[in-house]
Amino acid sequence: MTDWAHVLDELVRVRGQALVRHAYLLTGDVAAAEDLVQDAIVATFTRRSRVRSAEAVEGYVRRAILTTYIDGYRRRRRWRDVAHLFARPDEAHGHDGPVDDRTDVVAALGTLAPRVRACVVLRFYDDLTVADIAAELGLSEGAVKRYLSDGVRALGAALGPVRDDETHTVLERTTR
């Protein structure tokens, strides 16, 4: 087995499911998330002539997942991503009780524009700082803050009051 094949095997065995969970929050669909992760892994291992370790290559795979998703993953999905922009603000309705339904959360995430959605996932699922998100996505920190503000507001309209926890401090980046 070649070196890259060893690394691929370890990456999938140790981090495969975590990558799919991360991609699921972007795509909202498990099958689409699995395909997105596979395409990102293939692209990363194809482009990099040397892959040292699963830990080292995972960052590149995560970057490829984000870029592929934001740049318009699959032609048919682009229209659905654009179609949500037609939604009128007054279509949102309030929720009185606690939100614990995955379907509701994923559906609410699906109303966000791809870059907004990516910022929300990186901030509130991957625990990245604003500066880290800006670096990942090639944006200014001001743009990231704007996207996060838009995303939190939109999720609040769909799910009921949400706490974005400005006091939520990222002490260290944990790998999920």
């Binding site: 991360h22 929050l25 606690p98 614990d100 995955r102 996932v121 009921g160 009051p161 949400v162």
Partner: peptide, 12 residues
């Protein structure tokens, strides 16, 4: 209010 952090973790 519901914590977004907890919501996303719970969903994924």
């Amino acid at each position: 209010s519901t914590d977004l952090h907890d919501l996303l973790r719970s969903a994924a």
